[in-house]
Structures are given as C-alpha cells and as structure tokens.
C-alpha cells in the first residue's frame, strides 16, 4: 500500500516537466516559450487599432512577483489598451527560472507585453536564455504609423563599447516609412552604466530626428520625465514594480498624453 502511494506520488511529480531541473543556468527547458516579444508584436499588428495607440510603461520587474500580480490585475481594467512595455530587468539573477516566474504572471495580461533586455537579464547565461525566451535583443515594429524601436543599451555588461549597436539604431530611427518614432531601452544615455564614448553620438542621433517622440528607459528605479540634454528630446524613465505605479501613455496625432496610475 505504502509503495503504491509512493509510486503514485512520483508519477504526479514526474508529470510536471518543469520540476526536473538539469541546472539553474539552463538556457531553456521543455516548457519555456520561444519568442514572446516576436509573438506579442504579431498580435499587436493583427489588431485593427483606432486613432490612438495606448500602452502601459513600466520597468524593473526583478524579484517583485507579488507586485506583478497586482500590476496585471490593475492593467487588465484599462479599456482600449494596445500593449504593455516592461523596459528590462525581468530577471534579477539572469536565470531562466526568473523569466518563467515573471512570464507566468505577466502573460495573464489581456494585451501583449513586450520587453527589452536589462542588465540583470544579461548576467551569466541570462542573455542566451532571454534571447530564446523573448526574441532578438534589438527589434522594432510600426503600429498605426508609430515606430517603436527596442534596443539593448546595457553597455556595462560588455567588456568593450559594442552596445548599443549605433549602426542598427541609426537605420531604425531614420525609417522614412514611420510618421513618428519611439525609442525603448533599459539604460538611458545619461546613466553612468551607458557607454560614455557613445553617449553624445546617441543623443545627437535622436536630436536629429524631427519625428522622434520620446526615449523610454528604466534601470534607475526612480521615475523621471524631462529634457536632460535641453535639445528638445524627451526622456522618460519608468517606475519600477516596487513603486507600485506605472505610466499610461496615449499617442494621438503625434501627441503624447501621459498619466501615472497606482496599482
């Protein structure tokens, strides 16, 4: 009898494939999704849309799982929302398990959520896990004329100044097809963790695009909104999850309407 119970319990455990871990550093497992961002973009582009692009903007989800649940509950009450942006640091320790914990909560959002890689997502084998899980680290899409350019700006994680990829970025933000451009990345150019040798090149690139609307970042765990280079380019740094506030943006006719919501 005892043995039968034991065998039954083993079968029950074995049924959850996720529990058979080979290594905490695993780059993927049998259950981990592939290309969550890529699928999210496809979903967004398959909706007809209206005259407004409405999205929620937040960052630094790392280790704040309870807050993620509250966030999802609140965001799901917003009408006519198109998508959510989580601007990096989904994981804290660069572990696949952390991406899975976050995804099992954030995938309960009614709208797609899109991420951009943060420095904590890169550490160890994190970059490889993140790339398979979410998709390419630099990607873009154009929805209702607004081009969103997601890119890796975590310069400090690389021994040489190879990030951000300025050539890729220059091609993306100068797209003649886009009416307006929005930049999304984790580390802002004015942050100490951004490559100093690329800061002015980056700021100049954005300044020279007349249709560039706003540059969105996270990493600092403190919301800010302003014109740090006094050159007409607006930079907004997201709230982190622990602050239990997020920014809700609406884009109408090239105008940016911003509200801050608690959750």
């Amino acid at each position: 009898m005892m043995k039968k119970k034991g065998v039954f319990l083993l079968f029950l455990l074995a049924a959850c494939a996720d529990v058979w871990e080979y290594s905490p550093k695993q780059k993927f497992d049998r259950d981990s999704p592939v290309g969550v961002n890529t699928q999210g973009v496809e979903r967004i582009l398959s909706t007809p849309g209206d005259d407004t692009v409405s999205f929620v903007f937040i960052g630094d989800a790392q280790r704040f799982y309870e807050e993620q649940e509250h966030f999802v509950a609140k965001v799901n009450t917003l009408p006519n929302l198109d998508f959510v942006i989580v601007a990096g640091d989904i994981a804290d320790f660069g572990l696949l398990q952390e991406l899975e914990w976050a995804h099992s909560r954030l995938s309960k959002l009614k709208v797609p959520y899109l991420t951009v890689i943060g420095n904590h997502d890169i550490v160890g084998t994190g970059e490889q896990a993140f790339t398979r899980f979410y998709g390419p680290l630099n990607y873009s899409f154009t929805f209702l004329g607004y081009k969103f350019v997601f890119h890796n700006t975590n310069s400090k994680e690389y021994a040489t100044a190879i990030v951000p990829d300025m050539n890729w970025l220059a091609r993306e933000v100068t797209d003649p097809q886009a009416s307006y451009v929005v930049g999304v990345s984790h580390v802002a150019p004015f942050d100490a963790d951004f490559a100093r040798s690329l800061e002015m090149e980056y700021a100049t690139l954005l300044r020279n695009q007349p249709n560039f609307l706003v540059s969105l970042h996270a990493h600092q765990h403190r919301h800010s909104d302003g014109y740090p280079y006094q050159d007409g380019v607006r930079y907004v740094v997201a709230h982190h999850f622990e602050a239990r506030e997020f920014v809700h943006f609406k884009l109408i006719n090239g105008q940016l309407i911003k509200t801050i919501q608690p959750f």
């Binding site: 455990l13 074995a14 959850c16 996720d18 529990v19 058979w20 871990e21 799982y65 309870e66 993620q68 649940e69 398990q97 914990w101 099992s104 909560r105």
Partner: peptide, 11 residues
Amino acid sequence: SIKPSEFVKLG
C-alpha cells in the same frame, strides 16, 4: 505569490 511547485526542483 511564488508557490513551492515553482521553486522546488526534482531529481
């Protein structure tokens, strides 16, 4: 938020 089944691994 995190359940034991989410952080206990088996071999």
